[in-house]
Design a protein around this nucleic acid. Structure first.
Length: 377
DNA sequence: CCAGACGTTGTT
DNA sequence: GTCTGG
DNA sequence: CCAGACGTTGTT
DNA sequence: GTCTGG
């Protein structure tokens, strides 16, 4: 399922968080403090930000600052778990995901890890490709309130021949998609939201698996933190590309077109449940507006069929709505500045991640092609 | 005992 | 590394 | 997960 | 089609 997501931070950096309260700072704050370099296309086999708990006496301290009381460490690991007994950095195994069902059942590759090396992968959201015949249309799923998405993960370290440092890698735990997401895909990452779930998942002190942990792997359902999902530019499918537009609804860029076609409306073909589209009013708060410029030009193919269905989706029934209350319990509230001393760490300039040239223009018959040129200010 | 698997997704 | 299959 | 490669000999 | 790289 989850083969791509958004948000990352600079490689090889290790941050010391100041205990669980800082977890709240989580969202927004880390990003706004430029401790993260926002990324919009995090692929397997690349580095990504991971949170784990460290225990006194363990020798896995890496080079994190030794400032005492904290036991939560944030650093980067490579996506795609390499078991500790492997001597090679590559593997035949598919380990970018771990099925929750197989954790519960026990044994196997995960048997020795699930009780001891759990972590949380930080993301703005994740991509999923909706299959439409032979076409695949990328969608982005995220918390409606723009909170960081916390994905349940497992990690391990391996000593690779010819390397002096251990290789840290992780995998993302998956489960059945919940009802609201079945139209998109049958699997979903395990998304943690409540403080107690987060602490439960990160607490490996017992070194064992428990029923409580199994419960966390149930399909996502947290009415207080609803998700939203919308189509995004196909360009996200190209590895190595980066653009904030990848996590923005493609429909937003089709305003003109949408207006033109808006009479078609629906005739709900199947009884499929669908997600409500992002409310237009809401989409304004951007996560960490990057210094990064928008691409010179973006091109989107609008296939009539998908287009129709896409429009249809916006009239559908809906995702649970949260109008209520501060989604994070008080216990998570940060005391002061959560990350004031990540040792020598400083905000760094946005790396230039663009490599994309020009979207190709070969209008392939059947599809309607529309180009949008965003004038990056 | 040794050899070989150990995994996921998607597609057929 | 640990478990399974032969 | 998707995108892109997937091969050899001989000659320069 | 299948494998590799990102």
């Amino acid at each position: 399922m989850c083969g791509r997501f958004a948000l990352g931070l600079p490689a090889d950096e290790v941050y010391q968080l100041h205990g669980y309260p800082a977890l709240h700072a989580e969202v927004g704050e880390w990003v706004n403090q430029d401790l993260f370099v926002p990324r919009y296309n995090v692929a397997p086999n690349t580095q990504a930000p991971v949170l784990r708990r460290r225990y006194a006496g363990s020798s896995d301290a890496t080079d994190a600052s030794e400032s005492g009381s904290s036991n939560l460490v944030l650093h980067t690991m490579k996506w795609g778990l390499i078991p500790h007994w492997s001597k090679s950095e590559t593997t035949n195994l598919s380990t970018i995901n771990a099925r929750g069902e197989n954790l519960v059942e026990g044994g196997g590759l995960w048997g020795s890890i699930k009780g001891k090396k759990r972590c949380i992968v930080l993301a703005q959201g994740y991509y999923e490709w909706l299959k439409k015949g032979k076409h695949r249309l990328p969608h982005f799923s995220r918390h409606k309130d723009d909170k960081l998405m916390l994905l349940a993960g497992l990690y391990d370290t391996a000593t690779i021949e010819g390397r002096s440092e251990p290789l840290w890698t992780f995998t993302i735990v998956t489960t059945s998609a919940n009802k609201d997401f079945e139209w998109l895909h049958d699997r979903q990452p395990v998304i943690l939201t409540s403080y107690s779930d987060i602490t439960t998942w990160l607490d490996t002190s017992s070194q064992t698996w428990t029923k409580d942990l199994s419960r966390l792997l149930d399909p996502y359902h947290d009415a207080s933190s609803p998700l939203e999902c919308y189509a995004v530019p196909k360009e996200v499918g190209k590895v190595g590309t980066e653009s904030p537009t990848f996590i923005q609804p493609v429909s937003k860029r089709k305003d003109g077109i949408e207006a033109m076609f808006s009479n078609h409306t629906q005739s709900s073909p199947s009884g499929k449940p669908k997600l409500a589209p992002p409310s237009p009013a809401k989409r304004k708060r951007e996560i960490s507006p990057p210094a990064e410029p928008m691409p010179k030009s973006m091109l989107f193919e609008v296939d009539e069929e998908s287009e129709a269905k896409g429009l249809d989706r916006r009239h559908s029934q809906a995702v649970v709505k949260s109008t209520t209350e501060p989604l994070v319990p008080q216990c998570l509230t940060t005391s002061t500045s959560p990350l004031q001393s990540p040792s020598t760490k400083k905000p760094r300039p946005q790396p230039s991640l663009h490599r994309k040239k020009q979207a190709k223009k070969g209008a392939d018959s059947s599809a309607k092609i529309t180009s949008f040129f965003s004038r990056a200010s």
